[in-house]
Amino acid sequence: MRALVPAWAWLIGFVAIPAGLLVAIGLASPDDGVPPYVLGLDFGNFAAILSDSFYLGGFLGSLKVAAVSSLICLVLGMPLALGIARSPPARRPVLLLLLMLPFWTGFMLRIAALVGLLRDDGWLNAGLGLVGVAPIPMLHSDFAMYVGIVYDYIAFLVLPLQARLAGIDPALREAARDLGASGFAVFREITWPLARPGVLAGLALVFVPAMGEYVIPELLGGASSQTMGRVIWDEFFGNHDWPRASALAVLLLVALLAPAILARR
């Protein structure tokens, strides 16, 4: 029991208390003051959010961004994870290191680098210009946003997935091949079912943060990408309605936690 004390302290200090503060501010009333709310039991924020289709639009926008990003990460990450998992054990640490190397620089720096890469007079367009292609506007588009999210999150999918894949006994695949299964059949019947917990863990690690992602859609995405991150930012900074912003954050948290808790049962 005593061994769990640090874990509980961490959960209380960094999860329960911040979430409790969010709920408390979510139930406060907005006010001109420092801080700009008065604590209370104002359910109006939650009622306004649930009755206003504008917020649902933001939620659906985020849902789409998170789902598409997770799928792209899976499609690109699966071969990567297989490649790492099936390489000689001595070489795996080097491959994992290469995967994680970009994370040694700051997040903002990586996004700024992508801006430099994708802009109209950026490196990519300069390269296209050398072969006579007119500059293609890429920055501030859904394309740029997905490039940014996939680039930033794919390691979170690959790491748990490759760990899972590396644990699969190669003898199972060899047996299937010996019994005449095609390469694809082996993947479908053996690798995929055994890898599923890793796939689900990886997808969750991409999907959940992508739901609340603010910076990447803001810096790389176009004007039309309306996401929860941006909706909450607008309420907090644009409308100075901290209670409504907090209520939105609480509802987003509930929407993400509820399926996870239900799935555990």
């Binding site: 001109d32 003051g33 420092v34 801080p35 700009p36 907090f236 900074f237 100075h240």
Partner: peptide
């Protein structure tokens, strides 16, 4: 505005624009 409304910004001189920030900070008592 985010820093000022949260309080205890630690700053001594700030340069808000007349509208909307300066007037709102006055109303908020900041």
């Amino acid at each position: 505005e985010g820093k000022m409304l949260a309080g205890h910004s630690g700053y001594d001189v700030v340069v808000p624009t007349s509208e909307p920030t300066f007037s709102r900070l006055i109303r908020a008592g900041a």
